[in-house]
Amino acid sequence: TYYTVKSGDTANKIAAQYGVSVANLRSWNGISGDLIFVGQKLIVKKG
């Protein structure tokens, strides 16, 4: 599943929404920190 980042989103918020850990969200998308951008497409695997 892909999720498009919206204004006000955070890695924590997206992870919680899908029931996954922030560490997994980072791993699936090659993100090292919490910096995400509006319009960015993230791979999300439901927990």
Rank of each mutant, 00 (worst) to 15 (best):
K46R: 12
N29S: 02
T4S: 07
Q40I: 07
D34F: 08
Y2H: 08
V38Y: 04
G39P: 00
D9T: 01
I14P: 00
V22G: 04
L25Q: 00
T10S: 08
K6D: 04
I36N: 01
K45D: 10
A23E: 15
I14Y: 01
Q17L: 14
S21H: 06
T4N: 05
Y3K: 00
T10G: 03
K45W: 13
A23T: 10
I14E: 00
Q17D: 10
V5Q: 01
L42H: 01
Y2S: 06
G39W: 06
N24I: 12
G33Y: 06
Y18Q: 06
V44A: 02
S27Q: 14
G19I: 04
I36T: 04
A23Y: 08
Y2P: 04
V5A: 06
Q17A: 13
K13Q: 11
V20G: 02
Y2T: 09
G47A: 13
R26H: 09
L35A: 13
D34L: 08
D34M: 09
S27F: 12
Y2F: 11
S7F: 14
G33K: 07
W28R: 00
Q17F: 13
V5N: 00
Y18L: 11
G39S: 04
A23H: 11
Y18N: 08
K45N: 12
S27W: 10
L42R: 00
L25V: 04
L25D: 01
K6Q: 13
T1M: 13
S27H: 13
V22H: 04
G39M: 04
Q17N: 09
V5D: 02
I43N: 05
V38G: 03
G30C: 11
N24S: 11
G39F: 05
Y18S: 05
S7P: 15
K41G: 05
L42C: 04
G30K: 11
A23Q: 12
T4K: 06
D34I: 08
I43Q: 08
S32W: 10
I43W: 10
W28Q: 03
G19Q: 09
V22N: 03
V22F: 05
K45I: 11
G30E: 11
I36L: 14
K46M: 15
S32T: 14
A15T: 02
V20E: 06
N29Y: 02
F37S: 09
A16Y: 09
T4L: 08
V20K: 00
G19M: 08
G47D: 13
G33H: 09
A15W: 04
N29C: 03
F37V: 12
A15S: 06
K45C: 10
L25H: 00
I43A: 05
S27D: 15
A15D: 00
G47F: 12
V38R: 05
K13D: 11
I36M: 08
G39N: 06
S32E: 15
N29V: 02
N12R: 13
I14R: 00
G19S: 08
K13Y: 09
V5G: 02
G8C: 04
G47M: 12
V44P: 00
W28L: 05
L25I: 09
G33R: 06
F37I: 11
A15P: 00
Y2L: 10
G8D: 06
G33W: 06
V44T: 05
I43G: 01
G47N: 12
K13L: 11
V44N: 00
D9W: 02
S32R: 11
G8T: 06
V20W: 03
L42S: 00
W28H: 02
Y18F: 15
L42V: 06
L35I: 13
V44R: 00
V20I: 15
G39I: 05
K13I: 10
S7D: 14
I36Y: 05
S32M: 12
I14T: 01
I43T: 07
I36S: 02
A23P: 06
I43K: 07
K46T: 12
G8A: 05
Y2C: 14
L35P: 08
A11H: 07
G30I: 06
V5S: 03
D9Q: 01
A11C: 15
G33A: 09
Y18C: 10
G39H: 04
G8H: 06
S21F: 05
A11P: 15
F37R: 09
D9F: 02
N24D: 15
S21V: 05
S21E: 07
A15Y: 03
K41S: 09
T10F: 03
S7G: 09
N12D: 15
A11N: 03
A15E: 02
T4I: 15
K46S: 11
R26V: 14
I36V: 11
Y2V: 10
N24Q: 15
L42D: 00
T4V: 14
I36R: 00
I36C: 06
T10H: 04
G30L: 08
A16N: 10
V20P: 00
A16W: 09
G19C: 08
V38M: 07
D9V: 02
K6N: 06
V38S: 06
R26T: 11
I43L: 14
S32I: 15
V38I: 11
T1L: 13
S21M: 05
K13H: 09
Y18T: 06
N29Q: 01
S27T: 13
V44W: 02
A15R: 01
S32Q: 14
N12Q: 15
I31S: 04
V20N: 01
T4Q: 07
V22K: 05
S21W: 05
K13W: 12
T10A: 03
W28Y: 04
D34P: 07
I36W: 06
T4F: 10
N29M: 03
Y3T: 03
G30F: 09
I31H: 04
T1V: 14
D9I: 01
V38W: 04
T4R: 07
K6S: 07
Y3C: 04
L35K: 13
A15C: 08
V20S: 03
S7C: 14
G19Y: 06
Y2W: 13
K41F: 07
K45S: 14
T1D: 11
L42F: 02
R26N: 10
L35N: 14
L35Y: 13
K45Y: 14
G30N: 15
G19W: 05
T4Y: 11
V38H: 05
W28K: 01
I14V: 07
T1G: 10
Y3H: 14
A15I: 03
Y18E: 05
W28N: 02
A16I: 11
N12P: 11
Y2I: 11
V5L: 01
F37D: 07
G30M: 09
Y3Q: 02
K41H: 10
V22E: 09
Y18A: 07
G19F: 06
V20M: 09
A16D: 11
F37G: 06
A23N: 10
A15Q: 02
A11M: 15
T10W: 03
G47H: 12
I36D: 02
A15G: 03
A11G: 04
G47S: 12
